[in-house]
Design a binder for these strands. Structure first.
Length: 566
DNA sequence: GCGTGACCGAGCTGACTGAT
DNA sequence: ATCAGTCAGCTCGGTCACGC
């Protein structure tokens, strides 16, 4: 392991050496145990002491692999897939069959040397053959391989045959992943190229906008104190209590095509205590700021719900305190997280990623079928590590559970994220951080209805309500993998699974057609137009008409193999 | 008359609880 | 076991009263 570490490999080169990374490493260090954890902790401590990490070829630096987030044999704990590989014969986990690790390895090997894939595919396996036959679905090949793996894990299977079958399966998976790997490299290249040089509003000559940034608690407290001092001055001058609040209505939003996100313009309005229409809102704003000051002074965090319950009589409904909270963030010029107020956990992540949450190491391959709840304190998350090739963004929990239970990420190295519907702030921040740190492409799996597209737009371009923080909440260039209206015919979705669009759906879809983020992508526009003309929608679950595992065993592999994303 | 803000309703997702 | 209601996280649009 040390020899590999000192070989002077660039961080990116770790991928080319995946077989050894996921195979040999696994045999030597099958589980992510305390030993490897303490190894890592030691290395971390060394880094924090300022000493050069002994095993790393070079310290994490700008460019290349960013912070060295790619798992390498020398510094990354083995993923369960590889762990299962090492445990062949004993555990022989059905969830993480041995070939999974090699599959990932093969995907990299194939990408590195495409010619090698053709040679490896020559092995005579029904699974491989199925994968090679255009008429056979990838899922069939995978299913076949899966069965063979199960057989192979038994004592009767000859070792040679088992190896051949495993090899053929890895080749099949590698072929599926070929396009994704290419895209991942492209994304990595682009993100590295634009790192630190991304176009800014200033560079574009757009100055009349309201943008917020992370601020430390003392700065936020000072800002609140200044606001109160100004308010007191105003009262003493006889001008009454009032606040200048940025106008967050639709009329004050601006879509910036160069950045592909919505920003808040600089228009403000006066919220005055001597107006009958605004007196409550002004009182609520004052009270909320007082509470925020308390929270910040004690250096604790609170939830939106907690804040509401602190003065139910005044707020009446949580909507009122929630809205004011965003106003206060706007006025102060900080993110909502900087106010130390968070929403309850909503999003979930599972798959091939590890990170530290407030010092604790989280391994998302070991979170069962439910996944790891995305914590609201995104600022406490650090040290992303992954060997995934892409991030799969899923609209619904049902589809997420299917993917998690089938351990989709073991066969096709990926990170699966869902916000269970409309995304909350934490999930959006997590996705952005994950994408930026790991430099991975993001593929969206949403319903074939206008709301699915709208949810994608919130991830990509931001929402109007939170446009003041779109700089940190949006993730550009998400690809729409499915379910798309054109898929309904392509995959022969049965009639009973196609739902007629309601008048409200059609109205919503027509409004979406006018949205900038749809108009700038002709393929998305065409799909939405087709949906509106057919007046038919479908949910991800429609794919279950062919079986509950159709999604993971056929649909997604085929989509990936055919590079069918737009 | 126009713009703005408050309020309501509708949509997406899910979890949980109590009644049937 | 199922269903309805409530709650929680989001989104947006329409209507109406009010102020300029």
């Amino acid at each position: 392991r040390r020899a590999a570490a000192h070989s002077g490999r660039t961080p990116g080169a770790g991928r080319q050496n995946l077989p050894s990374r996921l195979g040999l490493r696994a045999m030597m260090d099958p589980l992510f145990d305390d030993a490897s954890s303490s190894d890592e902790a030691e290395a971390q401590a060394a880094r924090s002491r300022g000493s050069k990490r002994p095993r790393a070829p070079k310290p994490a630096a700008a460019g290349g692999r960013g912070d060295g987030k790619r798992m390498r044999p020398t510094d990354a704990p083995a993923l369960p897939a590889s762990g299962a590989a090492s445990a062949a014969g004993s555990a022989a986990s059905a969830h993480a069959p041995p070939p999974a690790a090699a599959a990932a390895a093969a995907s990299a090997a194939t990408a590195t040397a495409p010619s090698s894939s053709s040679s490896s595919s020559s092995s005579s396996s029904s699974a491989a053959a199925a994968a090679l036959t255009p008429s056979a679905s990838v899922g069939e090949a995978e299913a076949g391989a899966g069965q063979l793996t199960m057989k192979g894990s038994g004592p009767a299977a000859p070792a040679g045959r088992e190896m051949a079958l495993a090899k053929s399966q890895t080749a099949a998976v590698a072929r599926v992943m070929q396009g994704v790997v290419a895209m991942r490299r492209q994304v990595e290249k682009e993100l590295s190229a634009t790192s630190g040089r991304a176009p800014t509003l200033e560079a574009l000559g757009i100055t009349n906008v309201t943008e917020v940034r992370e601020r430390d608690p003392s700065a936020v407290m000072r800002a609140i104190e200044e606001l109160f001092a100004d308010a007191a001055d105003s009262i003493l001058r006889g001008q009454g209590l009032h606040f200048e609040v940025p106008n967050r209505t639709a009329a004050n939003q601006l879509y910036v095509p160069e950045l592909d996100r919505i920003v808040l313009k600089s228009k403000t309005s006066t919220r005055s205590f001597d107006s009958t229409a605004q007196v409550r809102k002004t009182a609520i704003m004052t009270r909320v700021m007082e509470m925020l000051h308390q929270v910040l002074r004690r250096n604790i965090h609170t939830t939106k719900r907690d804040l509401f319950y602190a003065d139910v009589k005044l707020f009446r409904s949580q909507d009122e305190s929630d809205a004011v909270l965003d106003d206060v963030a706007c006025v102060i010029g900080c993110t909502r997280t900087s106010l130390h107020v968070v929403a309850s956990e909503k999003g979930v992540v599972v798959g091939r990623v590890q990170f530290r949450e407030d010092g604790d190491l989280i391994d998302c391959t070991r979170m069962g079928v439910g996944g790891k709840a995305i914590p609201p304190f995104i600022d406490k998350i650090s040290d992303f590590r992954s060997d995934a090739e892409f991030i799969l963004l899923v609209e619904k929990d049902a589809a997420f559970m299917r993917l998690a239970e089938d351990r989709f990420y073991n066969k096709y190295p990926c990170i699966i994220i869902t916000a269970k519907g409309q995304p909350d702030v934490a999930t959006r921040l997590f996705l952005r951080k994950c994408r930026d740190d790991l430099k991975l492409p993001v593929l969206g799996l949403v319903d074939a209805d206008p709301y699915g597209l709208k949810i994608l737009s919130v991830y990509m371009s931001g929402s109007k309500t939170m446009s003041y923080d779109s700089a940190s909440l949006t993730t550009s260039d998400i690809k729409w993998l499915g379910v798309r209206p054109s898929d309904l015919d392509k995959y022969n979705i049965p009639e009973q699974c196609r739902l007629p669009m309601k008048p409200s759906d059609i109205k919503y879809g027509k409004a979406l057609l006018e949205e900038d983020f749809v108009r700038r992508n002709p393929k998305w526009y065409a799909e939405l137009e087709a949906m509106l003309s057919s007046k038919v929608k479908a949910e991800i679950q429609a794919l279950s008409s062919y079986g509950f595992q159709y999604l993971t065993e056929t649909y997604l592999p085929r989509k990936l193999k055919e590079r069918d994303w737009i």
